[in-house]
Every structure is written in C-alpha cells, then in structure tokens.
Nucleic acid binder design. Structure first.
Length: 592
RNA sequence: GGGCGUGUGGCCUAGUCUGGAUAGGGCAUCGGGUUCCUAACCCGAGGGUCGGGGGUUCGAAUCCCCCCACGCCCGCCA
C-alpha cells in the first residue's frame, strides 16, 4: 500500500466496468481509469461522464447516470454515489480516507510518496556545460530540471545515477587553456582590455570559474579575426585529441568546473558521476566509433578527407543532410564523441535520459541517426526544455554579453531574504538568520525555475525570480515552518500521533487530507511524463490547503479529541510537505 | 525557406498527452482580517474572443487542417 487513493479508484473502475458491461457497453477497467475524472471540488471526489456510453447504448445520459448511481456497490472506501445531470459522482468515505491517509504517512515517514522499487537502472545526464566560465541563469534550467527529474525517478523507485558530461575537448575549452598558457601581460591587448578584473579582484579572491572565464568572451571575438590565434587554438585541440594535452588543460578545466559546481550546490544540485570527454578518446572508444562509421551504410569522404555520413532519409533539415564525423585533419567532432558516450551509457543503464535545451534538438536527431548508422537500436529519452530569454529578446548568452550570472542572482536573493528575516524575527542569532536567508534565497530561485513547464520559454525578470510571496519557494518553506512551529510548541515533534478520524470534520481539514493523499499519484505521474513542474504545482496546492486550515482551525487551543487529531494532521502535513520539498530540492526550514 | 516549440484577464501561469460539469492559481489593483498556534498568511471584488479561422464531436483550451505572431536550430562550433 503506497497510495491512499488507489483502492477507491480501483473499486470504482472495476465496478463501473461490470455495470456498464451489463448495460451493453463493454469497456475495460484500464480505459475507464483514464475516463474517471476528478469531480469539481465541493461536488464529489471523482466523476464519470456517461454521454459516450449512453450514446452507444441508446439511453439518455441522464437516465444512465441515475441508473448507475442508484445501485452502485459501495465499499473499498466509497461512501456514496450520486448523479447530477449526465454525471455519476463518487464520494469517498471521508473518515476512512483520513484514517488510511494519515496512517500511511506515519507508517512510511520519509518514504511517503515513494512508489514500489524497480530494478531498471536509469541515467539522467544533465547540465554538462563546458568548463569555460560561470553559469548564467539560462543554463541552470537544465540542471534544475535534470536534478529534479532524478529525485522524482528515485522516489518512483528507480536506481538513478546523475552524470555530468564534461566537454574538455572542444575549441571552447581549448580557448581558455590557450589564453591562460601565456602570462597576462602578454595577452593580446583586446583580450587584456576585455578581461580586466574589477578593482581588488584577484585569482586568490575570486571563484575559479569567474576568474578563468573572464577572458572567454574577448578570446572568442579575437579568434574570429586573428587566424594565427585560431591556428594555435586548433593545434591545442589536436594535442588534446592525441592525448598530449598540456597538464594545464586538465588543471584549468577541473578548477573551472569546481567553481561551477559550487554554484549549483547552492541550489541543491549535485552529481553522482562525471565523464570527461577526453577519456572517451584516450580509451579508444571514439576511435572505434569512427571506424564503425567509416564502414556505415551511408559513409562518404569529403574532398579534404573529412569523414561524413549521407543522412538523407533521416528526416533532418535538407541543408543538414550530411553529418560530418571527423574534421579534414581526422580529429573527431562533438556528435561523434557523443555517440561513443551513449554507447557507453547503454552498456551501464537500462534507461538513458538526456536533458537538453531546445537548441540541441537537431543534435538529438543527429545522434539518433548516427546510432542507427553504427547499428545501435537503443535510444536515449530526450527531455527538452525551452530557453530562458532576456526581456529585450533572445536567449542568454555569455558571448553576446546578455546573461545574468547565477551567482549574482543567488547573492541578490540571499541578501533580500536576509533583510526579510531580520524584519520579521528579532529573536534569532546572526548565524540562524544567515542560514535561513541562504535557504530562502536558494529556494526562491530554484522554485522559480521549476514551477514552469519545461516546454515554455521563460523570460527572465529579476522581480519575478526574487519573489518570496504567492506561488514561490519561500511560501512553501514558510508553510512547512508554520507546521513545524505548532508541533514544537506542542512538544510533539515525533510520533506517535494518535487521532480520531471523526474529529476532523471541517472542510479545511478534509481538503488538507485529500491534498496530502495526492503525493504518491503525483510522483507516479511525473516519473511517467517528465512534467517535473507538476510537483511544484502540487506543492503549492498542498501548502495552500495547509494555510487555509491554519487560518480557520485552531490546533493548540482546541479541546480533545480535536486537538490531538489536528496535531496529527499537522504532523502529516509537515511530513508530506517536507518530502515534497526534498523532491523539489528546496530546503526544509524548521523556522523562518 | 525547412524543422521543433510556444501563444490562456494588465503581467506570469495550471489544465492540453487521455475531449466532459461555471477555464483553476499567482502578481498587480481595490476592499476586509492579527488582544488568538509565525500576516513570507487568509477572506472578498473587479478583470478571460483560451492567438485567428475552419473542421470532427452530444460536448473542444484540449483532437485534425489552414493561417498569424514570437523563440530556437539548420557549422569540418559545442
């Protein structure tokens, strides 16, 4: 037993199938499961629209609804069946629902919401940004979505590994090594000018991603008009590919990555594994992929010796009907190396999920075409999200100078949170205030990115990202803290929580129980659909239900048995909201 | 030009996969609520051609077709 709504749904669907069958309308329980709607709130728990069945049977829908409701068998947590117009309405046995929901929450504790264990190993690869400089806000959507998806899949019962694919082989990371391989005072003037650190900032005082990343944009500009510099960078790429990369290359890459990961850690994103692209070249996997592609059905060789694939027939855009596998000098390209990486992932995992920005959509299809060409039938599942754009238009880009640094956003969020905490709480120590502010700021930013469907483009606006009110991370944290506070004052911070289901009778109480009961279904839904934002929507609804309860129903000042029962309800809310916050990667706060 | 995605009150958004009851929320605006468990909260009000047009259906924000607008991609970059 892991979902308090499951038995009642199953009962309804099973009996409905039987009764509709008796009316001459055969429909499987599975099909009916999909047709069973949530009834409008206040009307009932579930509703079934009879129009379709009625039409097929030749009975007026209203009559069919009346007939079905009249002698529908109760039980399984179903207390009452009514009809309204063409709808059959199913009402749960509320005391029984309260009992099964709260008991389940207390029995499972931190495990509440999780599904039955599964054995298929899943890999969620996300973020995988080049180690060339600090994260901007546009990039973190990938990490937030990927990290949350991984948390949800774990909750759904899968063994999950998160991976960061570190691209240390491309031109972009070579650019950083190239510029830092010479003393700063010998840098080309335009680079030195463009990369000048602000007053008082040095390598010792600044995070490595910010420090090493500073010249990135200027170098990128320089390479467009300086063939000699471009040639030197190209030479470096060849060195890396042949395994003779300067030690500095890996050192800088690791330093920059470390700085980047520190930023992600601030919003709860961590990785299980890192796969450095260069290792795939050095262990020969990329070479083997190139050899297999050379013998592939549609392999061709371009005039300058570049190996390519004639990809017509793969549904790629016309101009892109050729996939280039190696450069003229024989060095590999990113899609080719990514094939090697995917073959490796397939050997380690049953399911491979790639979180990709929409700008990688074509890459995804290229990758699939190349996998076909090497005779690999397995496919990654792509979780595609739209970009975060800048209000003036266009997506964030460090190179174009249109980007907001994640660290800057977080610093600002934490600063504002600090001011808010100070305003509200005079009793806390400076350390407590600082800690709360960090989690509130981080929670606001992470939730802001998470609350919107991945399919939707997001326009970045400071005021929205920094909102602590309404549908926000801090609202959830505040709700959790309120629940924690009541339990603390009652000295009831741990089980057991005895309760009497019949003592919980107000609309606010029963709605809160219903919300608590919806977590397992939400987890199952998201693990199936990858609609990670649904967890954010759920969390908000739960917190809202709790705040309404809090407002209208006294707990500590109530008489028994209401008092104990309400304390149990508060404890169940704290557990459920806490488990949900864990899924969202938003820190729980016992006080704020 | 082709491919993918998006379009829901002033702004942001859920619902779209699997069609079903008066399209839910948040921000902003206006009006209320704290001698009482944390007002980062709660209650109420106004505000909607669900981008436009056709179609399918008993029924369309949801499915199909056409069109419009916006974003991204269409490198021997990643």
């Amino acid at each position: 037993m892991w979902d308090p709504w499951l038995s009642i749904r199953q009962h309804i669907v099973r009996e409905l199938a039987l009764r509709l069958g008796a009316h001459g309308y055969p429909e499987s329980a599975d099909a009916l499961e999909r047709q069973l709607d949530d009834a409008p709130s206040g009307v009932a728990d579930f509703g079934y629209a009879t129009h379709r069945a009625a039409k097929s049977v030749g009975t007026p829908p209203e009559r069919l609804a009346t007939e079905l409701a009249a002698d529908f068998p109760l039980g399984g947590g179903l207390a009452r069946v009514t009809s309204e117009g063409a709808y059959v309405n199913f009402h749960a046995d509320t005391p029984r629902l309260i009992e099964s929901t709260l008991e389940l929450v207390f029995a499972r504790g931190p495990e509440y919401g999780r599904g039955p264990p599964r054995t298929e190993k899943v890999c969620v690869e996300h973020t995988s940004a080049n180690p060339t400089g600090p994260f901007h806000v546009g990039r973190v959507r990938n990490g937030v979505i990927g990290d949350t998806m991984a948390r949800i899949l774990r909750a759904a019962g899968y063994p999950v590994t998160t991976e960061y694919y570190v691209d240390d082989m491309g031109r972009q990371s070579a650019m950083i090594t190239w510029i830092w391989s010479m003393p700063v005072d010998q840098w080309p003037p335009e680079v030195r000018e463009g990369a000048r650190p602000p007053e008082g900032v040095s390598a010792a005082t600044e995070k490595a991603d910010h420090w090493y990343g500073r010249p990135y944009r200027s170098v990128s500009e320089l390479l467009k008009k300086d063939p000699l510099a471009a040639q030197q960078v190209g030479e470096l790429v060849r060195q890396v590919e042949s395994g003779n990369s300067p030690a500095r290359h890996r050192e800088i890459g690791e330093a920059v990555l470390k700085g980047m990961l520190a930023s992600l850690a601030r919003i709860g994103i961590r990785f299980d594994e890192f796969v450095w692209e260069s290792t795939l070249v050095q262990d020969g996997s990329v070479g083997r992929v190139i050899e297999r592609l050379r013998k592939a059905p549609h392999a061709t060789v371009e005039e300058n010796g570049a190996l390519a694939l004639d990809a017509r027939g793969y549904g790629l855009p016309k101009e892109n009907a050729t996939i280039v596998v190696t450069r003229g000098d024989g060095t590999s390209l990113y899609p080719t190396r990514d094939v090697a990486y995917h073959l490796q992932k397939f050997s380690r995992f049953a399911r491979v999920i790639d979180v990709l920005g929409q700008d990688h959509q074509l890459h995804a299809r290229t990758l699939v075409a190349m996998l076909t060409e090497v005779g690999e039938a397995r496919r990654p599942e792509f979780l595609i999200y739209q970009d975060i754009t800048v209000p003036e238009g266009g997506r964030m880009s460090t190179r174009k100078g249109k980007a907001v640094n994640l660290d800057d956003l977080l610093d600002e969020a934490v600063e504002r949170a600090h001011a808010e905490v100070l305003k509200r709480r005079e009793d806390l120590s400076e350390d407590q205030v600082t800690e709360i502010a960090q989690h509130v700021g981080a929670g606001a930013v992470r939730f802001h990115v998470l609350r919107i469907a991945p399919d939707k483009p997001v326009k970045f606006r400071w005021e929205e990202a920094l909102s602590f009110e309404g549908r926000s991370g801090p609202f959830l944290q505040y709700s959790y803290a309120r629940a924690a506070s009541i339990l603390r004052k009652a000295s009831r911070e741990a089980p057991p929580y005895p309760f009497e289901a019949t003592a919980l009778t107000t609309h606010e109480e029963t709605e809160l129980v219903r919300a608590i009961g919806r977590l397992p279904g939400t987890v199952a839904y998201v693990s199936r659909t990858s609609h990670v934002h649904t967890v954010a929507t759920y969390a908000f609804g739960l917190a809202e239900a709790f705040n309404r309860f809090y407002q209208s129903v006294p707990v500590l000042r109530a008489e028994e048995p209401a008092k104990s029962s309400r304390l149990a309800l508060v404890a169940a809310t704290r557990q459920t909201l806490g488990n949900t916050l864990d899924l969202l990667g938003v820190e729980r706060l016992e006080r704020m």
